[in-house]
Computed example of a mutant assay.
Amino acid sequence: MTRVTAEQLATARGCVLGLMLGDAIGAAGGTVPASGPLRATSAGQLACFTMDGLIRAHVRHRHRGICHPPSVVWESYRSWAAIQGVPGFEVGGDSQRPAGWLAKVPALAERRGSAPATAAALQRRKIGTIDDPNGTSTGAHALTRTLPVALYPCEPAEMAALTHAGDAVAAAGLAGAVIRLLAGGHGLVEALESVARDAGDWSEASERSLVPALAAARSGPAALPELARLAPDAKAVSALAGGVYTTACFPGRETVHEALLFAASAGDGGHAATVAGALLGTAHGPDALPVDWLSRLELAWTADTLARDLVTELQDSPSGGEYFPPTDPWWRARYPG
C-alpha cells in the first residue's frame, strides 16, 4: 500500500515537467516548430541528474543511516560530465562510477550547450558550500537545475553552491522557498509575495529579482520591454526575475501556453521560461501543461519517471531499509545509494 497521494504526485510531476517544458520552449526562443521533438538543454539534463542524486541520497540514508545529500548530487553531476565527455571524466574512471538507469538515457549524453561553470567546478574536484562556494559564477544553471530540490527535505541553495556562488545561490534559495509554499497549497501570487516580504538571508537578491518583478506585474499587463529589462542576461537573478514576472502576469492554469511563449522572449537564453514552467507546473499540476507540446517533449518520460520516483522514494522507500524489507527488489539497481 503506497503512502503517495494524488496531490503529492501532481505537485512533483507538474514542477518537473513544467521545468523541462520551459527549458525546451526557452531554447526555441519562443518560436516553437510546428512538429518534431522539443529538445532539452544542458540545464534540463542537469535537472534530471539533480533528481537522480536526491533519490540516491535518500536510498543511502535509509540503508546506511547517514548521508550528505549535496555530496551524492555532486556524484550524479559527475556522471553527467562523464557521459557528456567532459575532459577529465571517464565512464568508470577515477572514483566516479556512473550507475543506475539515468546514465543510460541516450539524450542525456548528447551535447546541448556547454554548462561551462558547472563543468569547470566539477573539474576542480571541489565540493562547494554556501559559506565556501565553488567558483565565482552567478549563472542561471545554479537556479534552473536545482528547482526540483524544493520537493526534497534539503536546501536548494546548498545544491547551487556546489558549482556557483553569490546571487546564483540566493536565487536558488528564493525559488525553492516559493515552490515549497506552492506545494503546501498557497496560491501562486500569494507565494511569490510572501517570499518577497520575508526573504531572510536572501533579501539582497530578492530586491533585485522578486521585488521588481512583482512591482512590474502590478503596474500593468505583461510587456516585452519590461521582461527584457528584468531578464537581460543569463544570470540566475535575471532568470528568477523574468520567471516571476511572467508567472505573476499569467498566473492562471489556462494561460500556461501564453506564459511560456512570453517568458521565452526574454534575452536571458531561455532560463526565465524554465523558471516560469516550474512555478506554473507546481501550482497547477501536469494537466495544465499544453498537451501538444508535452507530447513532443524529448525527455518527458525520463522527467516524469524521476518525478514519480522521487515522491515514491520519500514516501515508500521501495528499496527497504535496515529494519524493513524492500517492496521493489530492483530499486537499488536503479538508484544505487
Rank of each mutant, 00 (worst) to 15 (best):
M1D: 11
V4W: 04
E7T: 12
A12V: 02
G14N: 14
L17P: 00
L19P: 00
L21Q: 04
D23I: 08
A24F: 12
G29R: 03
V32A: 11
P33G: 04
A43R: 10
Q45L: 12
L46M: 13
A47Y: 08
D52N: 11
H58L: 10
H58S: 08
R62L: 07
C67P: 00
P70H: 02
S76R: 06
A81T: 04
V86L: 15
E90G: 15
D94R: 10
S95R: 05
R97F: 15
A103R: 07
A107H: 05
L108W: 13
S114Q: 09
T129N: 03
T136S: 11
T138S: 09
V149D: 14
P156A: 11
A157Q: 02
M159Q: 08
G166C: 10
A170E: 14
A171H: 10
G173K: 05
V178F: 14
G184N: 07
G185V: 06
G187W: 12
A191Y: 12
A191H: 06
A191M: 13
L192Q: 09
A196E: 11
D198W: 07
D201R: 03
D201V: 02
W202S: 01
S203H: 11
E204R: 07
E207I: 04
P212N: 02
A213D: 08
L214T: 10
R218C: 13
R218K: 12
R218F: 11
S219P: 01
G220R: 03
G220L: 09
A223T: 05
L224S: 07
L224R: 04
R229L: 14
A231N: 02
A234H: 12
K235Y: 14
A236S: 08
S238L: 05
A239L: 10
G243T: 02
G243F: 04
T246K: 01
A248V: 06
V256E: 10
V256K: 00
E258N: 03
L260F: 11
A263V: 03
G267H: 02
G269S: 00
G269N: 00
V275S: 14
G281F: 03
A283T: 09
A288L: 13
P290I: 08
W293A: 04
L294T: 15
E298T: 01
E298C: 03
W301Y: 12
T302Q: 07
T302V: 13
T302L: 10
T305W: 11
T305A: 15
L306N: 02
D309V: 09
L314Q: 15
S317W: 03
P318W: 08
